[in-house]
Nucleic acid binder design. Sequence first.
DNA 1: TAACATAAGTTGACTTTTTGAACTAATTAA
DNA 2: TTAATTAGTTCAAAAAGTCAACTTATGTTA
Lengths: 149, 149
Amino acid sequence: MTTRNYHRQDCPIAFALSIVGDQWTVLLIRDVLSGVRRFEELQKRLGVSRNLLTRRLKQLVTDGLLIRRQMPGSRRHAYWPTPKCMALRPAILALAEWGQSWRGDAEGSRVEITETHSGKAVGVRFCRLEDGQEVNPEKISVERVARSR
Amino acid sequence: MTTRNYHRQDCPIAFALSIVGDQWTVLLIRDVLSGVRRFEELQKRLGVSRNLLTRRLKQLVTDGLLIRRQMPGSRRHAYWPTPKCMALRPAILALAEWGQSWRGDAEGSRVEITETHSGKAVGVRFCRLEDGQEVNPEKISVERVARSR
DNA sequence: TAACATAAGTTGACTTTTTGAACTAATTAA
DNA sequence: TTAATTAGTTCAAAAAGTCAACTTATGTTA
């Protein structure tokens, strides 16, 4: 991460990657979003070196994706995801869906997204904003617009 | 990239990152998906070192995200995205949307997704698969299911 | 068609990052 | 109170990335 010249690119993707583009960061956020809160637990699950985990956690706190707070009923502290962090779920889950469909598959665990109250299956898709209706990915156009406003 | 122990994790996100988790790879794919085809052009836009670009391109060809083919009407060759690569669009565009909404904003270029025939605005959202209707992101549950089937 | 320019790499020295293992200071548990 | 756990820090070694120069093949121009 660190000294990337990403930010000079004036691109929202590059901007996002300047924050979560590191090898471990997405995996780290995955675990925090799934309820893992403590340093030791994160280190064990990820297998990342401890000093790097320290650095990444600090940076994510600085970037406003994590908050470092005391655990309730203990003087030990833990890391909690902020709304900015939770807003990454569509991106991370879209990646999970891609991984699922392009992995040899049949083998391996899956990530299932459901509508909480009904239990119905949910996916990350293109939606018309006007009426919230799914749009075929073949029928969309993507354009880079310079400096809107 | 390279010697990641990602694949040992049995997680579709980790699997996806073992292919596109590198600093430059997502940016590289962004450019290929937007129509950039040639080595020199990619190198100039990204500012990545040439030997690393060579390695990444080779790896992406091996992984089936890019195809290296001759340019029509020339003996020079170029890189084309495969369906596997294009299937990354929801993930990449979700990242772009996140970048847009959490950047200081007002400044910087935007990525606009539209329905091709109508020109209506489109976004990457959670959708009920049954009827293709958008679902509020607060109303979803995510679960890791071990070895379906 | 010679001569130059461009494209797509390759090579190797140097710098930056990451790892790994050991060490430290606080909490918590026995 | 002693031991174990947690959340780090430190530093040397290994891995990965950068930068600049070199090569080979293809195009372009005079």
